[in-house]
Structure formats: C-alpha cells, structure tokens
C-alpha cells in the first residue's frame, strides 16, 4: 500500500463519482485531500464521509473561475504547506449528435473539461515550480483516444487534455514536476449508470477483460502516478479500460 502521509492532494470534481473514489483512496493512504467541487452540499457530504477515514478539507469552487482558483490554491498552500499532487478530474458530458449539438453544449464541455484543467494546472504549478516537485494527473477518457458518436464535444475536450498533458510534461520536467493522464474506459459511475443493458452487453464484448471497471481501478492508477513508483514516467496516458484501447 502507498504511503501518502503528509502529502497534500488536490482533486477537482471530487464530491462524486470517480473523483470521490480517488479522494477516498488517497485519504485511506494517509494523504490530506482537498476536495474541490461546485456544490457546497455535495462537498460537505463528501468531506464528512472522508473525515471518518482520515484527512479531508472541502473547497467550493468552479474550475473555470481563474481568480477563484488562484485564491483557492493559495489557501491550500497556506493552510497545508504545499501541493504534492493535483488531479484534474472535474468533467461533464453534454452528449448529442454533431448535427444537433448546440454551441453552448460544445462550449460548456470544453470550458469545464479542458479550460478548467488549464486553470488549475497553472495555479498548482506556480507552487510546485518553487517546491521543485509535484505530480499532476489529468483524468482524460478513452473517448479522447478513440472518439465516440454523439460525444464530439467530450472527445475533443479529452483528446485536448491528452495533448495538453504532453506539453505540460515537457515544460515542467526541468522542475521535477511530472504530468500524466489517466484515460478511464467504461467505469461503473453515475455517468454510465444510464446506459441500457443492451449497450452494456455490447461494451462488454468489446472489452478484452470482459467487464466494466470500477472507480477504484482508476483510483489505484492515480495513486501509482502520484507516488515515487512512477518517478520516471511523464507525459504518458494510461488507459484504464480493460484493454479496450491498445496503442
């Protein structure tokens, strides 16, 4: 088991879904986790739950709000002495066929999934650069690798996030700050709970390991990327997808 004692891990979109599972895994391994999410109610519920296991602090904020995030990251550093790991997990979907996709649905998905990661990475790196260490993990998606009908906006945001990961990895390497992406495949969450049984069966056939993944499968890879076990990895995208995409 990893030991993240005295490590500060900031996770966006951590109140629910994969983000919450990641937060829980880090808290279980001794980290102090800063939970960022949009709704105060969701943040409070998540933090109350995490505090039963270990150290968690809630912050309400919108990842697309640059000045709000600037303050929030400065506050985390002031209160906890630094940021060891940032996990850009906040993301949404607004699916529709391209022909019907509204411009605002395109923009909203790009803003939260891609611009939000840019903003949080910039704020966190300012502190990591001075500390000369850090790990940034971007939660992308296999959709950003393989594309998906009905998800042009989401695919563009996640594909962009993978390219963003590589550029940041090159730019931050001299400061010993590593940047990697995790691309979950089909994971059992609220986001995929709405899929019909037929669709699930189809996906099951396409996945070599024959089943959907769990949020904990993703969390474990994040812990690897945050730990010194991955000290020589940067700019990579690890697909956690049961073998769905191989490249």
């Amino acid at each position: 088991m990893h030991d993240f004692k005295d490590k500060v891990v900031v996770i966006t979109g951590a109140a629910r879904g994969i983000g919450f599972a990641i937060a829980k895994s880090f808290v279980e391994c001794g980290a102090t986790v800063a939970v960022i999410d949009l709704s105060a109610e969701a943040v409070n519920a998540a933090v109350a739950n995490l505090k039963q296991i270990g150290k968690a602090i809630g912050y309400v904020g919108n990842v697309t709000d640059s000045s709000g995030m600037e303050e929030l990251f400065a506050q985390v550093v002031k209160e906890h002495g630094g940021i060891d790991t940032l996990i850009n997990n906040a993301g949404i979907t607004r699916d529709n066929l391209m022909i019907r996709m509204k411009e605002e649905d395109w923009q909203l998905v790009l803003d939260i999934n891609l611009k939000g990661s840019f903003i949080c990475t910039q704020k966190a790196f300012k502190h990591m650069m001075k500390a000369r260490k850090g790990s940034i993990i971007n939660i992308a998606s296999v959709i950003g690798i393989m594309g998906n009908a009905g998800q042009a906006n989401y695919a563009a945001s996640k594909g962009g996030l993978i390219a963003f990961t590589k550029s940041c990895a090159k730019e931050f390497a001299s400061r010993n700050v590593r940047v990697n992406a995790v691309a979950p495949g089909f994971i059992e969450t609220e986001m995929t709970a709405t899929l019909s049984d037929d669709v699930r069966a189809e996906y099951g056939k396409a996945i070599p390991l024959g089943k959907m993944g769990s949020p904990e499968d993703v969390a474990r890879v994040c812990m690897f990327l945050a730990s010194e076990d991955s000290a020589y990895l940067t700019g990579q995208t690890l697909a956690v997808d049961g073998g769905l995409t191989m490249h």
């Binding site: 300012k126 650069m129 001075k130 001299s174 400061r175």
Partner: peptide, 11 residues
C-alpha cells in the same frame, strides 16, 4: 537562466 527561471525571478 532558462525561460522558466526568468518567470520565477519576476515572481
């Protein structure tokens, strides 16, 4: 100094 160093100096 590299380009990041100059930014750090300014900061």
């Amino acid at each position: 100094a590299d380009s990041l160093d100059t930014v750090e100096l300014v900061m």
